[in-house]
């Protein structure tokens, strides 16, 4: 579904050039859930923006569903760290924003919007304004807004990182359910090992400065998975331990002169 081919990204900053990504090669299958994990500033958000067509890579290319990405696509939905809701629009109208922008018929998508709200536990909140909702509920609305695009691919940039720990886990479990139900290809940027192991088929570990693909870790645990006790605790522990080692291995070393 997604092919990332030798993607490098260099930013020109005030202090010279910064290599955010270097030679990333990665294939993501249709229906796969890929988590991208790495330390802060390792370029994982940059990678997501390149896939989403919001950033043009300095070299290399990204192909989605057979087409080289040159601009955002309407069958690729993004969910950001912050819910990015329009504060003056009630929940339902926020969910319908993509429909309006695509110039499609609002009335026809209304049912779907309501079903999505129901699916994410927001059934009674369609007429509320965003500020009347908790952070977790706002992020659920953002998720519905992405899903109404009927996306082939969902790109999620640390979507739960601004939430408290319990809400995060709750939403992660919900996202797993949605993924099982809809089979959307998902690229999920996170810095939480727990989230990555719960959700992903594979976890791509990025190293920092420049962001290179360090390793891709398989998580061969059958779904549905849970955060609590289950039959696969050994595999969860093994995957978590491996990710820990990979991430901690490149703890910042003292700079050499």
């Amino acid at each position: 579904m997604i092919r990332i081919d030798a993607v490098s990204q260099t930013f020109r900053g005030r202090r010279g050039r910064v290599e955010a990504l270097k030679d990333i090669d990665l294939d993501i299958a249709a229906g796969e859930f890929l988590a991208v994990i790495g330390r802060s500033g390792c370029g994982k958000s940059t990678l997501l923006r390149v896939i989403g067509g919001l950033l043009e890579p300095s070299s290399g290319s990204v192909t989605v569903a057979g087409d080289i990405v040159t601009e955002p696509r309407r069958d690729v939905a993004m969910v950001f760290q912050r819910p990015a809701l329009l504060p003056w629009r009630p929940v339902l109208d926020n969910v319908l924003l993509p429909i309006e922008i695509f110039g499609r018929n609002r009335a026809e998508s209304r049912d779907q919007a309501e079903r999505l709200l129901e699916m994410t536990g927001l059934a009674g909140f369609a007429t509320k304004l965003p500020h009347e909702l908790s952070g977790g509920m706002q992020q659920r609305v953002a998720l519905c807004r992405a899903l109404i695009q009927n996306p082939k691919v969902m790109l999620m940039d640390e979507p739960f990182s601004a939430l408290d720990a319990l809400t995060r886990e709750e939403l992660a479990v919900e996202l797993q359910r949605i993924h099982i139900e809809l089979g959307t290809t998902i690229v999920f940027v996170t810095h939480s090992i727990g989230e990555a192991v719960l959700l992903a088929d594979r976890v791509a570990v990025l190293s920092s400065r420049p962001g290179r693909l360090n390793k891709v870790v398989e998580v061969p645990i059958p779904r549905p998975r849970t955060f609590g006790h289950n039959a696969h605790m050994d595999q969860v522990a093994a995957a978590s331990a491996e990710l820990h080692e990979l991430l901690l291995d490149e703890s910042p070393r003292p700079a050499r002169a």
Binding site: G53, R73, A77, M78, F80, Q81, A84, L97, I101
Partner: peptide, 12 residues
Amino acid sequence: PADLAELARSLK
């Protein structure tokens, strides 16, 4: 806000 601008861009 930058996130709203980016949302608009991602929706083309």
